[in-house]
Design a binder for these strands. Structure first.
Lengths: 210, 210
DNA sequence: TGTACATCAGTGAACGCGCGTTCACTGATGTAC
DNA sequence: TGTACATCAGTGAACGCGCGTTCACTGATGTAC
């Protein structure tokens, strides 16, 4: 089967070259989600999806890694926005806010498994020790800080006990555990995901009660 | 840099052809652990590590997928053996047995990150619905049943409450969450892994108390 | 005891493929004088 | 107003690479008669 070639994209007018950049990022993200396979996101495939020739990609990104890193960043921002807004909507009760974040976290992962895989299941190079570990991952930093803040509010309200960062890590690890197992092992006889998330959340909250 | 070619392996004597099969499995596993990169485990690289030519692999494995599936199975058996024996050693107190399994689980993952990745972080095709989900993954079934059994003992002893399978899934998801995040995001400013595992285990056990 | 034959455990060379990336180029559009 | 030139936004063709896999073959060893 030959690659489905998109219509040839008309050349951008002068000064609008940056539009192609945005289209490339978008196409790469969609390609990843649609094929469900990071190996299928090749420079050629992305160029084809956008309707442009492969060398054009290099007018906007240094190399393939730079492109993927930026796709990752864009999707991370989306992830943070979705999870945080679900949490904020329920924050009247800080515990409900945390639970809503957990549910939204898992739901995002299951709805966008390949994006989730790229964000949280693919090895991201460790930065040099001493450097800022968040350098180049500002969206990641924001997402984590949002979680720590929500956790701190629940602690301040007396709903749970513990040190905010430690508790946030436990919640994150548990929700990530559920999400990534469901994504990695779809053949396993899982119970209903909602129930698994609910049970896990209830156990954690009970265990963290002051 | 040219691939470091192993000494040419002497031809097996008659009737001993199966020895090469075992050596191939072993070399593929070591290659995965040493390079830390599944993409580097190519038919050519494995053949080279064993000291044989690429077509020889096909005398023993139908194709690359079959080889990787069997590597996976071998490592899964090792994983189950390590975790279960750590648990059995502490089973005098069922709760201590569960905790020992949790620690051994995470330790195995951190000591063999690429094997862990292959076992639990790489998508394994879902089987046809209706078929036995464990078909071809007998080692996986055994490992999971060992965990459920240990959980059931802790429940029977009155140390924790709940339904064995549900509780086992919660414990698994949490330990997997910790392990896989540490593996996937080594650049994150993690606390000491032992502390993270200990905190998570304590929270879960507290939340599951009868 | 000798010899033809079968079998086993591989080898050597090649196939076609898709990949990331580079390089010289093109053609439309704006700007200086 | 005309024209030379610069710039922008790409294209077309090719590079070398490593990959999974196939195919015809080889040479040592056993077995039948």
């Amino acid at each position: 089967m030959p690659r489905t070639t998109a219509a040839r994209r008309p050349r951008a007018p002068r000064g609008q070259g940056e539009r192609l950049r945005a289209d490339i990022l978008d196409a790469a993200g969609r390609l990843l989600a649609d094929t469900g396979d990071e190996a299928k996101v090749s420079i050629r495939a992305v160029a084809d999806a956008v309707g442009v020739t492969p060398p054009s990609i290099y007018l906007h990104f240094a190399d393939k890694d730079a492109l993927l890193a930026e796709v990752c960043d864009v999707r991370f921002r989306e992830f943070d926005r979705v999870v945080e807004s679900a949490g904020v909507a329920a924050d009247a009760d800080p515990l409900a806010g945390l639970a809503a974040r957990g549910r939204a976290y898992v739901a995002f992962g299951l709805a966008n498994p390949e994006h989730y895989r790229l964000l949280f299941m693919t090895r991201r190079a460790p930065v040099a020790s001493g450097a800022d570990p968040w350098e180049g991952h500002e969206a990641g930093r924001a997402a984590f800080e949002h979680l720590v803040a929500a956790t701190a509010r629940a602690i301040a309200a007396g709903a749970i006990a513990g040190e905010p960062t430690s508790v946030a890590l436990q919640l994150w690890a548990a929700m990530h555990g559920v999400t990534s197992l469901l994504i990695a092992l779809p053949g396993f006889p899982w119970p209903d995901p909602d129930q698994l998330v609910g049970d896990t959340m209830r156990t954690l909250v009970a265990g963290l009660r002051p």
